[in-house]
Amino acid sequence: MKDLVSIKDINREQIELILSTAASFKVVLQRDIKKVPALRGKTVVNLFFEPSTRTKTSFELAEKRLSTDVLNFSVPTSSVVKGETLLDTVRTIESYGVDYIVIRHSSSGVPHFISKNTHASVVNAGDGTNEHPTQALLDAFSILDKKETLEGLKIAIVGDVCHSRVAKSNIYLFSNFASEVRLVGPPTLVPEFKGYNVQYFNKIEDGIQGADVVMMLRIQSERMTKGFFPSTLEYASLWGLNSARLKLAKKDAIVMHPGPMNRGVEITSEVADSDQSIILEQVTNGLAVRMAVIYLLGRDNEQ
């Protein structure tokens, strides 16, 4: 595997390899000295065309823990605005002699484009409304921390699936494990996934009934002005996760959120801070998973 641009490109075996490698790195991260020399001398560029704090921080720290040299190349908008083509940007960066390009871009398909035009390993850190593969992997890793298997697990994904790259990568990932995926939200925010075994629910009460995992998605107010739903107040009242609704899920159900949360909109503070919430653990696990991804792509390159 040269790149990780899409969960659709990898199979169950590869996913399991990433997750088991992440488990080893998680042990490392619990030590006093958290750094390993695994990729000393390798260079990573974090190429971020879209503002990002948490994903970028997570990648950067993961890269440093692997002893790589890290370059940050942040462009607030598309390279086109500067008058440079994306291809030129990629070629410029490649000329530095980098081994990995971690790419975040507001346009779907950019990591695919870059992977075709570079020898470096490309990691998709989120492209448009398309995919966010490392988030899906860290979500799977976090679920497996609490549950024995993903097999047959009832997983409710609630909210703006339409614009969520996190939701999409998760749907593709869970399809490898015959999990029971339920998409919950108004039809304006939930597209059809014909090729995947998913169920659709307009009402959150129906969707989270008996669920093992409740994954809440961030709702962006920008969607409101474009008419996907009337107001955050109405959204919160119809699709927000509160304690009463969470009781409909299994007793040991876990609550997840890719962050950043809108407290009081898609999730109440009571739920977000409850024992069932594993939201902060997701962040911690993200480090180990991203270390594993970069480490494994690196190994493949040398073979």
Binding site: K8, S108, G109, D127, G128, T129, N130, E131, C162, R165, K168, P191, E192, F193, K194, G195
Partner: peptide, 10 residues
């Protein structure tokens, strides 16, 4: 349609 969803394109 479905392909647009799969590609993350509007």
């Amino acid at each position: 349609g479905y392909l647009a969803t799969l590609l993350g394109l509007e």
